[in-house]
Amino acid sequence: MTTQIAPAAPELEVPAPQRPVRKKRDGRAAALYLLPAGVLLLALMAYPLYQLVQISLYEYNQPQASGAEPLVFIGLDNYIELFGDDQFWSVLVSTVLFAAVCVIGSLLVGTGLAILATRVRTVPRMLLFLAALGAWATPAMAGSYIWLFLFDADFGVVNEILGMQGHSWTFDRLSAFGLVAAEVIWCSFPFVMMTMYAGIRNISAEVIEAAQLDGATWTRTATQVILPILKPLLVIATIQSIIWDFKIFTQIYVMTNGGGIAGQNLVLNVYTYQKAFAGEEYGLGAAIGVVMTILLMLITVVYLRTQRRSGWQP
């Protein structure tokens, strides 16, 4: 997974740091350095995760948790119930599509603005960054309420400007998803933008100059020199965005009032919450959690595979 900047052309090679030749003692030293974080992650993440798998194999509701009723091992029944639920599959499809829109949206907006930021002077750039940092810093719940307020049917400033008072943005399924996606992109593009901006800035001037001297136009330089160099960055930003956007909860929960009219705007995490946690069916909730983790891993692996095939080197 260590990534080196993939050279676009041999003469543009960026020297990767050479590793010192102290390999023998590396293993032991590394173990020592990794020990504190490792212990913590094993104890507070791996072990609960193992217990999560266990819970998913039991009938485990609130009475079982508080010890009022004995535990019953039911094998894969929770999973069978889940996979037999038509709603699960339709929610799964909307989750994937919704996450895809959010991921692509944040990447496009973030990268576009990063490129824009490299081409303007300090003051406009600082303004853009300040606004973006503000969006990034806003707690998810607050952000959701603000957007809901802006797009309120009667009192929202958006309807006021558009002259369509009374129009509900959350009644129609797609319009509701769109509104939430806009909010998600608003608070997640800054990460992509900052990353890509820093990436562009880090490209050494010689690389660009060399391309320019070769007579390349600005567009060609951008697509054939800069983009390939940025590719590893883009891949990471994409993976992070997939992980975050697939697990969206607060925005959907708050903005569509718990999943929209008759559950039309449910995504997996909200579905899990309503199906399992609010109803205190933890066994089923654990099963969905396990399925979600596996699903995310699959998506990431498939994505990394396609990237590798198209030349990205891990």
């Binding site: 217990q51 266990q54 194999l57 039991y58 485990y60 948790a65 508080s66 010890g67 535990l71 091992f73």
Partner: peptide
């Protein structure tokens, strides 16, 4: 064996 051996956590029966 690990999965089946010890069950998930539970509060002491009350």
């Amino acid at each position: 064996a690990l999965v089946v051996a010890c069950g998930p956590p539970q509060a002491a029966n009350n």
